[in-house]
Amino acid sequence: MQTVKIVVTGPFSAGKTEFIRSVSEIDVVSTERKISAEAEKIKESTTVAMDFGRITVDEDLILYLFGTPGQRRFDFMWEILSEGMLGFIVMVDSARPETFREARSILETFRAYAPTPYVVAANKQDALDAWDIEDMRVALRLDPKVKFLPCVAHDKETVKKVLLELLYTILAEMETSNKS
């Protein structure tokens, strides 16, 4: 049995666990704990080690989805999780501009770990106070070439779209490297 992995990262409460849960065929193996810090109590629990989802592609191949812990104090896990990944997705909460700086920082950190293909997903685009995608692109200082996709983590179709766009980016990269 062959396995490949994609990493889903992003700031605290960006919707990583929900994203994986939407497409995983197993109940997401989640290492969630009750949140202790008052400042971070915008949700009841948070991922402290990783989330783990699975998609069986066929009888020979399994795709694993790993969600990184969102709180910065668990960032020692990031490098371990990024080892050997096919690509990564950075989730950003469109309605919480105060997390944009951290999202950018996480993106830069992952880019430094490995020059792997990635896409950025603007999650919670269904929220009333969600930022416009193009405004977010400027705020996140994303290169125009980077795919930046609207997403609603509990909506399977948008999650599929994000995953597919990452896979198309991976294919495009393979084509480029084959030519050079």
Partner: peptide, 23 residues
């Protein structure tokens, strides 16, 4: 960007591509 050497279970480029299409 480039693909990490250990991202695929195979080193064969064709197989790698086929694997992505399967996913």
């Amino acid at each position: 960007v480039s693909i990490q050497p250990r991202a695929f279970p195979t080193t064969d480029k064709k197989e790698q591509k086929s694997l992505v299409y399967r996913i």
